[in-house]
């Protein structure tokens, strides 16, 4: 689902590839509703080192992936959003409220921190109950039980955290973030250390939370997993926001890069001869039962293919985009459009 960001007086629908353009201002709307997460002109620096530079975005409910290479500014962004860091410049708002020096807001925020630290002498149940108590829940035991059940740790809930594997500790961290049923969740690499089965289960939890109207912002570098949780992304490159929105729409904006399309048909050689003169086609490569075409005019190409096939009496079996995935988009943005 494409993101629609309304700033004061202007609406942009779909993805935006950042080229230093001004973004949302305070009080932004997302899909016609007030943004739940908002960064306005936020910079963070430590002496001469700039960790984040003039980042502006607004998000609404749903799952959004925060992508970027190591040192791109993902963790800094999450720490600013959770009040663990204070912006050097700009404004950070969650649910319309400032984050810094506003502890009451944490009743509506769940955080899975990046760091490994847990209390090794506590059992998982004690730890989650502690979180529930600190969130002033009326029945901390029941809430802790539900959260542990959600992350599939109920059977081992009375084991000390010091004896937990990395994947189990990660799930405990998720449980403490979920225990108070927050409206907004910030998750820094929540899947790290989890085995494939656990990863799938955790991804399903996040997807369900997004579908239930929660705002879920997940920092991750595992793109195929992010792809499975949703298509809304924020891409950080060198402390700047390189792109935001639906990554399919971002791909559509990458008009300086040809699309690769594989066409599987009954006579690839004849179809290749017909398509090589089609508008926007820059190269055609033959495979066994298919041809791979690079085109700078995908819309015209997709109209030309069935026409050419019909004229040559060729049967089409499949037409598939080869670089429509998140990884292609991410690599393109991280390389600054050079690859």
């Amino acid at each position: 689902m494409p993101t629609s960001v309304t700033t004061t007086g202007a609406t942009t629908t779909g993805a935006r590839e950042r080229r230093g353009a001004p973004g949302a201002t305070a009080g932004a709307l997302v899909n016609g509703r007030p943004a739940t997460i908002e960064l306005v002109g936020v910079s963070k620096w430590y002496g001469d080192k700039v960790a984040l530079s003039d980042v502006t975005f607004a998000l609404g409910p749903g799952v959004t992936a925060l992508l970027g290479a190591n040192g791109a500014g993902k963790s800094t962004t999450l720490k600013l959003l959770t009040g663990q860091l204070h912006p050097s410049r700009g404004e950070v708002r969650v649910l319309g409220q400032p984050v810094v020096a506003n502890p009451a807001l944490y009743r509506q925020i769940g955080v899975v921190p990046e760091q490994e630290g847990l209390y090794p002498f506590l059992t998982a149940r004690e730890f989650i109950e502690l979180s529930a108590r600190l969130c002033h829940l009326p029945d901390p035991r029941a809430a802790a039980r539900a959260a542990l059940e959600t992350v599939d740790l109920l059977d081992v809930a009375d084991r000390r955290l010091g004896a937990y594997s990395k994947g189990m500790r990660q799930r405990v961290k998720i449980a403490q973030a979920l225990v108070h049923d927050p409206a907004v969740l910030f998750l820094d690499e929540p899947l790290s250390g989890a085995d494939p089965r656990q990863r799938l289960a955790i991804m399903q939890i996040f997807t369900a939370l997004g579908a239930a109207g929660k705002t879920v912002l997940i920092s991750s570098h595992i793109l195929y997993e992010v792809e499975r949780m949703g298509s809304n992304v924020l891409v950080m490159v060198n402390g700047k926001l390189a792109a935001e929105g639906d990554y399919h729409a971002i791909r559509a904006l990458m008009d300086d890069r040809p699309r690769r399309v594989r066409v599987t048909c009954s006579d690839a050689q004849t179809l290749a001869q017909a398509l090589v003169v089609a508008p926007g086609v820059t190269s055609v490569a033959l495979e066994a039962q298919a041809l791979v075409v690079e085109t700078t005019a995908p819309l015209a190409f997709h109209q030309a293919v069935p026409r050419a096939a019909q004229q040559a009496n060729i049967r089409l079996y499949a037409i598939e985009g080869l670089d429509e995935d998140l990884e292609t988009v991410f690599r393109y943005l991280v390389s600054g459009g050079q690859n």
Partner: peptide
């Protein structure tokens, strides 16, 4: 030092 402070400070409790 143990990086556990966020479990106390990122909760709705006055400092």
């Amino acid at each position: 030092d143990d990086k556990t402070l966020p479990y106390l400070t990122l909760k709705p409790i006055p400092r």
